[in-house]
């Protein structure tokens, strides 16, 4: 029995299909959806934890990839380089889950990792390139 955290990206055409249901039914996996969002360009993003037999998890990943879902290991983090950040806030309107916000009192950038679904929309919007993915 192993556990694996994955980021699944569903393109627009399969966003309405009951894909996660198959993970239980066909591959006998336990899953916990940690975060899920449909981004403004209609792409579905899901942070999911799978629990089960290693072979079955591997088979499930094959199935997901086959149906058009992009599967990424969630072994990474969004990192804000505080030495570079000027607290402009440009990333805050991009952040659909409001993990990135400007503090109401200090006007400085806050990053709440718990809310981050690793959608990576923020990566290319930072004018001083202070937002990076840490693998």
């Amino acid at each position: 029995m192993i556990k694996k955290k994955l980021v699944l990206s569903f393109p627009e055409k399969i966003v309405t299909k009951p894909i996660t249901y198959k993970l239980v039914k066909e591959y006998n996996l336990e899953f916990n959806i940690l975060r899920a969002e449909i981004t403004p360009n209609m792409e579905g993003k899901m942070l999911i934890e799978l629990k089960g037999n290693k072979n079955q998890i591997d088979e499930a990943i094959k199935y997901l990839t086959h149906t058009g879902v992009t599967v990424q290991e969630a072994a990474k983090d969004i990192i804000i380089d505080k030495n570079l950040c000027v607290d402009c806030g440009a990333c805050t309107s991009i952040c659909i889950t409001q993990a990135l916000t400007l503090d109401k009192k200090s006007y400085k950038l806050n990053f709440n990792k718990e809310k981050c679904i690793l959608c990576e929309l923020c990566l290319d919007c930072c004018p001083v390139s202070a937002i990076k993915v840490h693998i």
Binding site: V86, D87, C95, Q98, L102, Y107
Partner: peptide
């Protein structure tokens, strides 16, 4: 405030200039 309404839809807002600076 971080949110405005455009055509009745709630829209997230952000500055691109730093108020803290």
């Amino acid at each position: 405030s971080g949110k405005i309404k455009i055509n009745g839809k709630s829209v997230q807002t952000a500055p691109i200039s730093s108020y803290s600076k």
